[in-house]
Design a protein around this nucleic acid. Structure first.
Lengths: 338, 338
DNA sequence: CTGTTAGCGCATTCAT
DNA sequence: ATGAATGCGCTAACAG
């Protein structure tokens, strides 16, 4: 900046002002500075700037459990695209579903004085995230903050599961297997709660022999499915709590060519072509990222809202899609842009 | 830091030394400092630190075309996991395959004084990235640097395509449709080159009537496939240059129940369950990210190598997988951890 | 082993 | 409309 000032024959201060579009600079000087900047290929040092400003300018952290899962990468894309429209960069940390990774990553992000954090928490207990709120705004996504008072964008896990399950019951199914996530995760708990609620409302009781939890991976879902199918009174339908588990169940059903109604949470690519009747509790994962980003922008005073408003909760709705046997034109989600 | 020093009854410098594990601090003082740090919940301001050091400590940029594409998110995960082992954070920018997004993102990253950049370039001309090399190391991934002398980790696009195509020719196919990417992309050019090379080696010529380029999306691949299948002398086999195009072709074949040999570049989840014979040119996309990260670490002097070594080229091999009609246990790629 | 000095590059404040 | 002074929080280089 000194160099630019020298070359333009002005003081560093004038250069700074030009870079800030400060109107109180003579057109003459402005021109000279701009020329000098271009000739020198000068670019402001954002590090110094942020030290002076006391915060990392336009930089937020995003914590996800597993980037390789299309759900998380879609959320990440939603966050990134929304924030980059505002000139904000995103630092991504993969927690691999480990709470201590999460803790470390957060500490690191905070010490970098980022402007805010969006977190898709690994566990369901978030008190360790509470101290962070004093330093920087934090937005929860896909998980209800527990022990922390913070903005959140949630999915209607409960109702999505409840309604899909109600359909199964209405169709006459009584022996329904539940492939579920660890109850320690918000999503795991809520989806199971919705499942049970549907039974309650129908005046029925869920038989624990059909309960298979906690499951995390495709492989675990495969095992659980085989196990369920080979027991006496095998289930006539399966509910799978996320795309991993749906895919695991599908693999087994397909290999056995067994007629079982399959219902799963999360849409996924090729879900419509699997050649078996499949009901999906669907939603737009990118929208979770977009809304989380918007909540954060509000907190940063960039959006429409007051930055000191009380915590807000946004709920993304789910819809139910039936992928029948026939293969037509209804496209499931995919990264169409590529 | 002043506060910590006061509380510990030492100078800020001693605090700094303790934080750096500098051995020349008396155990007594060290203890006092550590206690004070804990009591105050102090964390070093990384911004000030990096201003002092003249670089953003442990922060690199990653540019990808489309995070929602499993290929890119797998690469991103490979990068993130490798670098986070070294305490390095990753800033992700999604270029949406637009060169000017790429340009802007790079300029922004550089002005943040990041330690390095890993880029999966949008186009095939990279001279606009050359100036960046003066400021920060840059690693190319999945695309040969052109007009720039930089490290790169590449995929064996040429041979993967060539060998898979050779198989088709050996199996007697002569009318082979080629669903290809824009030739402006390295990957697009190389895969087409490999395809043609196989014809050359067999003493055959590729009939341009079966050439369908450039294609980018699932929908475009569907259209191209329908078009190919409805022409006179329809192809008896299709080669698809990436997972998007393979999926598009599959959708049409499945809807028509038409017997056409399908060969595609990129493995993808559920590829083994599609119920049609499918040959895949496979590789590990995470490995691209890991290797790119490793090259960058070397450049940063963190790895084993000299940081002023000449540019290096790493090539990730491909393998050919045949997913037959039967559905067994051979698992395709997926985010198994979740 | 520890403290003092000085400056990284910028922007806020005050003076001109 | 412009410039000079000051300090953000930290650490390298040098004393002591």
């Amino acid at each position: 900046m000194q160099d630019v000032a020298r070359r333009a024959g002005v003081s560093p201060m004038t250069v700074s002002r030009v870079l800030h579009d400060n109107p109180s600079v003579s057109d003459d000087n402005r021109r000279k500075v701009i020329t000098a900047v271009e000739e020198l290929g000068y670019r402001r040092n954002e590090v110094a700037r942020s030290l002076r400003l006391g915060r990392a300018p336009d930089l937020v952290g995003l914590l996800v459990a597993n980037l390789a899962n299309p759900f998380y990468s879609a959320v990440a894309l939603g966050v990134e695209s929304t924030l980059s429209d505002h000139g904000i960069r995103v630092m991504v940390a993969n927690t691999a579903e480990q709470v201590d990774h999460e803790r470390k990553a957060i500490a690191d992000l905070v010490s970098r004085r980022i402007d805010g954090i969006i977190v898709l928490p690994a566990g369901n207990e978030h008190t360790h995230l509470d101290p962070v709120r004093l330093e920087t705004p934090i937005i929860f996504a896909a998980s209800q903050p527990s022990g922390v008072d913070a903005d959140a964008v949630l999915l209607d896990d409960f109702n999505g599961t409840r309604l899909a399950t109600a359909r199964l019951l209405a169709a006459g199914h009584r022996r329904i297997g539940f492939l579920g996530l660890p109850p320690a995760a918000w999503t795991g708990a809520e989806r199971f709660r919705g499942f049970c609620a549907a039974f309650d409302e129908a005046g029925l009781e869920f038989d624990a022999r059909y309960d298979r939890r906690p499951l995390r991976t495709v492989a675990a879902a495969e095992k659980a499915t085989m196990d369920l199918l080979s027991q006496v009174d095998p289930p006539t339908a399966l509910f799978c709590a996320n795309n991993r588990l749906t895919i695991g169940a599908f693999r087994v059903l397909r290999a056995r060519d067994q007629r079982v109604d399959l219902v799963g949470f999360d849409d996924f690519e090729l879900a419509d072509t699997l050649g078996i009747p499949l009901t999906i509790v669907a939603y737009d994962p990118m929208e979770i990222g977009r809304q989380a980003a918007r909540l954060l922008l509000d907190r940063l005073g960039r959006g429409s809202d007051d930055r000191d408003a009380p915590p807000r909760r946004l709920v993304i709705p789910t819809t139910i899609i039936y992928y029948g046997q026939a293969v037509e034109s209804h496209h499931p989600p995919s990264s169409e842009e590529n």
